[in-house]
Design a protein around this nucleic acid. Structure first.
Lengths: 246, 246
DNA sequence: ATAGTACTCTTGTCTGACAATCCGACCGCC
DNA sequence: GGCGGTCGGATTGTCAGACAAGAGTACTAT
């Protein structure tokens, strides 16, 4: 690096298909094209950009994967706002590939879930509370089916995220939700007390939300997650091993 | 929906380029192709999948955007594990499109940054501490250049994430980092005390990390973020307005 | 008014081609 | 032997053009 000639910028010519993608992306992000609004047909884009259709198509594929562009039922292209679920699956995929351990997941979940629950205690709307109540009732009804309980558990926590009315927290939390999900079923199958304790925790959390009591909410979410961790250990797993493929 | 015949699954033939992408994706996610390992040439993929090169290329574009496939300098394709930065930009983009407010961002940042800092206080390695020290020294040196200070501020917080040794928290936090970034410069330009207060906060946080004192760490991160919010209001902005395009 | 039909538009896929560039091999020179 | 220069093959980026399947649309016959 002492070389006086070592100060050139890395040379890189961007391929045309990327330029096409970036151009469309700018239009959408800047709001000139609103979500749901149709993008022109491929032929139209060919004319506008002055490149071949193959090139346009490759550019479109890039955006399609981001969810910035959607195909309507008619297969016509339209702008679409990328929503959390899509991103969450990719985030959790990245975490799995990175061989994140359960301990990291547990620590992060503890932080974000308690914070979300506290926020929810302050702001939960009657509608969300009703949804949570329905979820809990359903959970009690299918208590002897671990798979069903697991799914409802995940929904319960997503509903708390909704109740918090903080979308940043929701998005940050969603991948942990997805990663916790598969282990919950394992635990419920192997740990006898699992389901009743889960239902009791949900009950207490919901009560605390109703009373707008952040402290109680926090306490029970902590217990709920501690149960999850203990159940995980009881099932014979090691906290420091990487989480597996979902 | 009372129609007895309404129980069929939605028919949907997946385009070939998606099938190609999924096939390659499975290979990578299952670990049969390790990150860094080269994918075959386009011609080879054409032979393997029995489709046209255009189709293969469209499939490749899908994965390229995910970071599952990278182009080496030679332009040859190789598997690559998607890393956080790429995801973080997309997450923050989604939040912007969703017109998330500053209040949501602030609340979420407060939760995640304090938690990360606490974890970092417990686990910060000498190497990261040295990096933080270097960052701080550089910040003092360029104190009269808001743009440079802003960039170093973002790096400082990313380094704390690294020090926490919790990759789940890191990923969850990164988008808020990206969104805070552009407003920081605005604040530093408009609020005279901004830079000295920022440097002082970084100094105190770093000291607390060195002493492995989570409480002090938490306190100073809180103050730092409070400064950010106040500066934001002093700059004449409203906390309940949606964050803007980055 | 409704069912059926023909026409057009659009996408998904294919064929074939060419320029630019990168890589490796080869060659001549010191 | 080491070095720089040249050549050919391999690979990607881009293009032109084509066709089938499917969706939408307008028109017609009943």
């Amino acid at each position: 690096m002492t070389d006086a000639a070592g100060k050139f910028q890395r040379i890189s010519s961007t391929p045309a298909y990327q330029l096409v993608a970036e151009a469309i992306e700018r239009q959408i992000l800047s709001g000139r094209i609103r979500p749901g609004q149709p993008i022109g047909t491929e032929a139209a884009l060919v004319k506008q950009f002055g490149v071949n259709r193959s090139t346009v198509r490759e550019g479109i594929r890039l955006l399609e994967q981001d969810g910035l562009i959607r195909r309507e039922s008619n297969r016509r292209l339209s702008a679409g706002s990328p929503h959390y679920e899509r991103l969450a699956t990719r985030m959790s995929r990245a975490l799995v590939l990175d061989q994140v351990t359960f301990r990291e997941l547990y620590e992060a979940a503890m932080v974000m879930h308690t914070a979300t629950a506290e926020a929810a205690a302050e702001r939960a709307s009657p509608e969300v509370l009703a949804e949570l109540e329905a979820n809990l009732a359903m959970t009690q009804r299918v208590a002897d089916d671990p798979a069903a309980v697991t799914e409802l558990d995940a929904e319960f926590h997503t509903l708390i995220g909704k109740a918090s009315q903080n979308r940043v927290l929701q998005l940050a939390r969603e991948p942990t939700n997805l990663l916790i999900y598969p282990t919950t079923e394992l635990i419920l199958r192997n740990v006898k007390q699992g389901t009743p304790r889960l239902i009791r925790a949900h009950r207490m959390i919901l009560d605390a939300l109703r009373k707008h009591d952040p402290d109680a909410c926090r306490t029970w979410v902590r217990r709920h997650l501690n149960d999850w961790r203990k159940g995980f250990e009881l099932a014979g797993k090691n906290l420091d091993q990487p989480i597996e493929q979902i």
